[in-house]
């Protein structure tokens, strides 16, 4: 469903992605792990055209991702994104955030959009918080609204860019729980994360990226329990046992 073929990308002299190829099937959950600066977020951002890539090709359901083409708007509506820092619209209520896309991008009927928006708020466990502004919600609640906002577009896939990295530790669980329930419903998800335990349990496949290349990939459960490559082993040791 999502295909990356030999992607290269440089920021000036810095060659951040050096030939990444990967395929994500429909309904698959792929976790991308790697040290900071390894290019994992950049890869994710290339998939919905928030970032351009220099060479190679990315396709979403056969459509080529080109951030300078009109078609990118359509691709973004099909591949939602959840950001590390939530990026909710601060001047709109939680429910307004959720229905913004359906009403103004997909031109859905206002009443049905609001109704579905309320359902989605309930689905992420925030029934009753519809009229709160983002500033009145905790980080975990804001991120769950952001997930509801992504779901409201009825996307074919959702990209998660370190969705729990900006959260207080005690709020991580509530966000991961929602993500896990999406996984159980068969949503296609690509998740950049440092939550190894979550990846091991929920993901079908894991990619370990370092210095812009895929160092190791495989079924998440076995790869994250018994990594073969030395760099993967070293990284996982440091993430799971910081001391």
């Amino acid at each position: 469903m999502i295909e990356l073929r030999d992607i290269h990308k440089s920021f000036g002299a810095l060659h951040v992605i050096r030939g990444v190829s990967a395929t994500v099937e429909k309904g698959e959950i792929v976790c991308i792990l790697g040290p900071s600066g390894s290019g994992k977020s950049t890869i994710l951002r290339c998939i919905n055209g928030l970032e351009s890539y220099d060479s190679g090709a990315i396709t979403v359901e056969g459509a080529k991702v080109d951030r300078n083409s009109r078609s990118i708007v359509d691709i973004r509506a099909r591949v939602s994104m959840v950001f590390q820092r939530f990026n909710l619209f601060p001047n709109r209520t939680a429910l307004e955030n959720v229905v913004e896309g359906p009403i103004f991008v997909k031109k859905e009927n206002r009443t049905t959009a609001l109704e579905r928006g309320r359902d989605l708020m309930a689905r992420v466990g925030l029934a009753g918080k519809e009229d709160n502004y983002p500033g009145q919600l905790s980080g975990g609640q804001q991120q769950r609204v952001a997930i509801a906002r992504a779901l409201a577009m009825q996307p074919r896939a959702i990209l998660f860019d370190e969705p729990t990295s900006a959260l207080d530790p005690e709020l991580v669980g509530e966000v991961l729980t929602v993500m896990k329930s999406l996984a159980e419903d068969g949503m296609t998800m690509i998740i950049v994360t440092h939550e190894v335990a979550f990846a091991r349990e929920v993901a079908d496949r894991a990619l370990f990226i370092d210095q812009g290349v895929i160092v190791e990939e495989g079924p998440a459960a076995s790869m994250l329990s018994h990594p073969r490559h030395a760099r993967t082993q070293d990284f996982l040791r440091r993430v799971t046992h910081p001391l």
Binding site: V73, R76, F83, N87, F89, V105, A152
Partner: peptide, 30 residues
Amino acid sequence: IDHGQIEAAQSIGMGWFLVMRRVILPQAFR
């Protein structure tokens, strides 16, 4: 306006005019 706002708007499929009208201008107004 925080660039994350623009990215969030783009990520739900908004084009340039819609991003301006619905996300940036209302916040810039204040």
